[in-house]
């Protein structure tokens, strides 16, 4: 904070005296972390301060953003979805295979989205109606989706459909800077999700379940619908992320996206969402993905650090956020 004061300006006093509500603090911390990393990188490495680097972050991580959005819904209810990485792989495979078989790209896209949504629905039903722990039910989903991927093809299939590849490279220019369509889709997803969580009855019920499921039940909220709903959303987001990923990588492969669920969970947690549920924002998850992305970019700019540092740093960030959250919630209770 700057030490300069303007005794006459009451507006400045108000700005100075403004403290953000504590519930926004985690997101602000993540934003500060991102700005700090970006700023430090900009000072240290030539060319990193370019706005296009920021836009490229969005382009390169579009699929992860969408994945993290779906995961945010699940984690907000206090659950977890381990299946999303496998669903991404399955989605690339369905897209590649159907296109190879000569399906229309639109039909192919519909098939991918329907599959992911259906898988999410099945897991949600298992979790809610049979009281199976989310991590074990989605573990079954992980195996199932990976198995289905292999069932379609053990080999990698490349995507060469013209409409599809055109979609992949569709670009929007802002003067000399540009964004791919995939990134725009991701940003739209974030916007819709933020709206749903903040302004709809469904969204608020998601938070209520994360705060206390039994209370939500006693308050007469639609707990069953919402609990199943978040896994449907997560399944849908995972398949949408799978589509974006196949647009990015232009192939279907059963070895794609191994461990991507961990990246998504890490992004959500670094974005300030409480793993026990009830607190967090999709915007935070977007920032979480960007923090992971900027670390990746910094490491590649540096050149001397190996890529595995990304995982270690992610782990350290995860630890920091989890421990801080733990003490923050312990103090409150």
């Amino acid at each position: 904070m700057s030490a300069i004061t303007f005794p006459t300006s009451s507006t400045w006093d108000r700005v100075k005296g403004y403290t953000p509500p504590t519930r926004f603090l985690p997101v602000i911390a993540t934003l500060a972390l991102f700005v700090g990393l970006f700023g430090a990188g900009g000072v240290r490495y030539d060319g990193l301060a370019d706005p296009q680097v920021l836009l490229s972050l969005l382009i390169d991580n579009a699929f992860l953003i969408v994945l993290a959005v779906g995961m945010t819904f699940v984690i907000l209810t206090g659950g977890i979805d381990l299946s999303v990485g496998s669903v991404v792989a399955l989605s690339t495979m369905i897209a590649a295979k159907t296109l190879q078989m000569g399906w229309s790209p639109y039909l192919s896209i519909a098939a991918v989205l329907a599959t992911g949504t259906l898988l999410g629905l099945l897991m949600g039903l298992l979790i809610h109606y049979f009281d199976i722990q989310p991590f074990i039910a989605t573990l079954a989903g992980l195996f199932l989706a990976r198995g289905l991927t292999y069932l379609i093809s053990v080999e990698s299939i490349s995507i060469s459909d013209e409409t599809f590849t055109q979609l992949a490279f569709k670009t929007v220019y802002f003067g000399e800077y540009y964004l791919r369509w995939t990134a725009i889709v991701a940003l739209i997803t974030v916007a819709i999700a933020a709206y749903v969580l903040a302004r709809t009855r469904f969204g608020r019920t998601v938070y209520a379940i994360g705060g206390s499921e039994s209370s939500a039940m006693l308050m007469g909220l639609r707990v069953a619908f919402t609990k199943v709903g978040v896994y449907v959303i997560s399944g849908f987001c995972a398949s949408l992320a799978g589509l974006l990923f196949s647009l990015y990588i232009l192939s279907g492969n059963s070895l794609h996206a191994v461990g991507m669920e961990l990246d998504a969970i890490a992004a959500v947690v670094i974005g300030g969402t409480l793993l026990t549920g009830g607190r967090g924002y999709v915007v935070g998850s977007l920032l979480g993905v960007l923090v992971l992305g900027i670390i990746k970019t910094l490491i590649s700019f540096d050149g001397t650090l190996s890529s595995y540092w990304i995982r270690i740093i992610t782990g350290v960030l995860l630890l920091a956020f989890v421990v801080v959250q733990r003490f923050a919630t312990r103090r409150q209770s």
């Binding site: 961990l262 595995y308 992610t314 782990g315």
Partner: peptide, 13 residues
Amino acid sequence: LILMVAGRGISMA
């Protein structure tokens, strides 16, 4: 989960 994420990085390091 923390060590699950970081562990492979450590192993590679």
